[in-house]
Structure formats: C-alpha cells, structure tokens
Amino acid sequence: MSTKIVPRRSEERGHADHGWLHTFHSFSFASYADGSHEQFGCLRVINEDRVEAHTGFGAHPHREFEIFSYVVDGEISHHDSMGNEEILKRGDVQMTSAGTGIRHSEHAHGGNQVHFLQIWAMPYQRGLKPQYYNRTFTDEAKTNKLATIVAPATAPGVTDTREGSGPTPIHAQLYMHASIISSATTITHTFPKPANASSSATKAYIHVIQKSGYNPGPAKGGKVTVSADGQEVVLSEGDGAYISSEVGKELKIENVGDRVVEFVLFDVDAA
C-alpha cells in the first residue's frame, strides 16, 4: 500500500462569524454539511474556535461522544453536570467522556479572547459512564518533538484517573500528538500498529493551528511540508491533511517557513 496525503485547505473548511464566536469546521458541523468531510475513522469534529471575552457556550447536552479541548491561547471557564468547575489555560487538554449524557458550558475566562480546538471522537463502546479528565502539557514538552497528549484509556502508560501524568485517556481508538516546531526543523513519526491487528493499514490526520488569526480566505502564516513514501504536501496555518498509509512507514513534518508552527496529529485506526 502506498501512502496517500490529501490536503484539506483552510479556506475550504466550514466557517462562521457570530460576533462572539469565530469558528472553522474541518468536518460537517452545525449548519455546515459536506458529505465528503463527515468524519475520518472515529474522528468526527475538529472545530477551531475563537470566543470573545465575557461570552461563551451556555449549558447544553451531549451524549455518546468523547469531547476534548486543546487550549491555544487565553483561558476557558468550564462547568458541567458532573460537578466539575475548571479554568483551562494554554497547554491544558480537557476531556469529557459524555457517555450516557452530560451537560456542560464553556466561556472565555478573564478579559481576553480564547482560542482553542474542540475535538470530538466516537467512542468504541456506547453507554459508558460519563467521566472527566484534565492534563497539562508545557510548550517545552512539545517543542521540536511530538508529545502524545491523548491516547486510548487501555493503552500502556495511560492512567484512567481525573488528573495525572501521561496522555489524556479517551474511550476511542485514537491517539493525538502535538508539536511546536521551529523553522528549518524536521520531526518524524512512525505510523503505529492499529488496534485491529489483522490489518496493516492505518490513518492519520494533521491540522496546522491557525495562530495568525481568524481568516476565512486562503491560509497564511507558517508553513510545513508533510511527506511520506514519496508523497509531499505543503500546508499553511489552518490547513489539514488526510493521510492513509501502512504500519511502520515514516511521516516527516518539516517547518519550511519563517516562523514557529504549532500542529496536532491524530493516529486513527483504518477499520
């Protein structure tokens, strides 16, 4: 199987400016519907949100999704029906395993806009008991290397507790890595063996965080090349890419621009 890298350009994402919320949708979400971008394996939502100060999402319900937030800049005030109250800041990863049902709210905390990724995955089992997790990953832990920040709850090194060290638990066949990569630096990643051991096929999705600001037009800012098995694609801030490959092959991400780039990378089972 040869590697295939298909770019998902920033300006092709769904987007909306509600005044208090400036958002992009990599996959179909809310009023944005695109049958060719519904999900990728168990990965169902990647929303890049900017919420203005003193505003936010009021209490609303969820069920049967693994929902997590990756804070890029600013702070989020989180409240939920499980009794969790948290102020999330840059470097924090907050996971809500909605299971049979929860309600939560999120607001920009303090006097500044908050910029974060909201990500949903479909669980490997329905009817789970709702749970909440919080982990922190420093910039140092992500600089010029891949830090594994989310991993299946059953994976080695994962502690299935509300707080702790190591990756944030998720009840889905998904790993999430994050990196802050300097100019002229290359990071490599070997595609892991999927949980479905009968298959050598695997999938990944990369998203380059749009730190240059809310811009519905063509991507700008930092640039990386993503290459594997003779395939190469250039991605700018806000761009993403679908990647299909085989276990053991190597993916390279090189910063070819003039500024630091932050990105997230998901390993998703092909099955």
Rank of each mutant, 00 (worst) to 15 (best):
K4F: 12
P7G: 07
R8S: 11
R8N: 07
R9K: 14
R13P: 14
D17W: 04
W20D: 02
W20R: 01
H22Q: 13
T23D: 06
S26E: 05
S26T: 15
S26R: 03
F27K: 03
S28F: 01
F29N: 07
A30C: 04
A33K: 11
S36W: 02
E38Y: 03
I46T: 05
R50M: 11
E52K: 11
G56T: 11
H62P: 08
E64N: 15
E64Q: 14
I67L: 13
Y70Q: 05
V71N: 07
V71F: 07
V72L: 11
G74E: 12
I76N: 01
S77G: 13
H79A: 09
S81T: 12
N84Y: 10
N84V: 13
L88Y: 05
G91K: 02
D92H: 11
Q94L: 09
Q94M: 10
T96G: 01
R103V: 10
S105I: 04
S105P: 03
E106A: 08
A108F: 01
G111V: 03
N112A: 13
F116V: 04
Q118P: 04
I119E: 03
Y124K: 10
R126E: 10
R126K: 12
L128Q: 08
P130K: 09
N134T: 10
T136P: 03
D139H: 13
E140C: 05
T143A: 02
T143R: 15
L146Y: 12
V150A: 11
A153P: 01
T154F: 13
P156M: 08
G157Q: 09
T159K: 13
T161I: 07
E163S: 15
P167M: 05
P169D: 14
H171D: 11
A172W: 14
H177V: 03
S179H: 00
S179A: 15
I181T: 11
I181D: 00
S182P: 00
A184R: 06
A184M: 09
T186E: 14
T186Y: 00
I187C: 07
T188L: 06
H189C: 06
P194F: 04
A195C: 07
A197H: 11
A197G: 04
S200R: 10
T202V: 11
K203L: 12
A204P: 01
A204E: 15
I206G: 01
H207G: 01
V208Y: 01
Q210I: 05
G213Q: 10
P216M: 14
G217W: 10
G217T: 08
A219M: 05
A219L: 04
K220S: 15
S227K: 05
S227W: 00
V234K: 14
S236D: 00
E237P: 10
I243K: 00
S245T: 12
E246A: 12
V247D: 13
G248W: 09
E250M: 15
L251C: 07
L251S: 02
K252N: 13
V256W: 00
G257Y: 00
R259C: 11
V260E: 15
V261K: 00
F263N: 01
L265M: 11
A270N: 14
A271V: 13
